[in-house]
């Protein structure tokens, strides 16, 4: 099926098998291998990308269903020469080890910060109250991204640092 998706600001028109997931479209068709396949079933978060600004699991998404959508993968966040503040903070705080979950963690962070700014609650948010930016909220909101190297404390530190840098 002919499908056009804007990926990292560039319109990409592809003839796709309807079975092709957004993740495999990025990785196998567009050679954008930053989004990772950790489980392929929405159980790890390594494939997290932003679709129309919202973080989702690209493994549980058919590419043909995203015709006309805007996708940002890690390759659209920053480059080695010009790291995004979240990327820089992950580097500075050693918020990864093997690095395989990292692109998903960073895309998830970007989505999470927007959700917080929009006042979306989490299960750590007091009933009826606006969410506050604290460690418990970060931990809960980043729990959809598994890091088996377990850089969890470093990830929390990086996110706090990045938010200040972005302010």
């Amino acid at each position: 099926m002919r499908t056009t998706i804007t990926v990292n600001g560039e319109a990409r028109s592809l003839d796709l098998d309807p079975r092709t997931t957004l993740l495999d479209t990025l990785r196998e068709h567009l050679k954008l291998t930053g989004a990772k396949k950790g489980c392929d079933h929405g159980q790890c978060g390594a494939c997290t990308v932003l679709v129309n600004g919202v973080r989702i699991n690209s493994c549980l998404s058919l590419a043909v269903a995203h015709d006309g959508d805007e996708v940002v993968s890690i390759e659209g966040v920053g480059t080695v020469e010009t790291l995004h503040p979240v990327q820089q903070a992950f580097l500075t705080h050693d918020a990864f080890q093997c690095g395989y979950c990292t692109p998903g963690q960073i895309c998830s962070t970007l989505g999470m910060l927007d959700e917080l700014a929009a006042g979306w609650p989490s299960q750590e948010t007091a009933p009826g109250a606006a969410p506050v930016f604290n460690d418990a909220e970060i931990r809960e909101r980043m729990s959809g991204n598994i890091c088996r190297c377990s850089a969890y404390p470093q990830i929390v530190a990086a996110i706090k640092d990045a938010r200040e840098a972005m302010a």
């Binding site: 929405g42 978060g45 997290t48 919202v54 973080r55 989702i56 699991n57 549980l60 998404s61 998830s108 989505g111 999470m112 959700e115 609650p121 989490s122 299960q123 948010t125 009933p127 009826g128 909101r141 729990s143 959809g144 991204n145």
Partner: peptide, 23 residues
């Protein structure tokens, strides 16, 4: 929903992950 049906908001937030709930 949060104001009048907090049980619903809390239940949804107890399920899946943010990425899954966004979809």
């Amino acid at each position: 929903v949060r104001a009048r049906y907090p049980v619903l908001s809390e239940a949804i937030l107890a399920g899946g992950s943010p990425q899954l709930r966004n979809k």
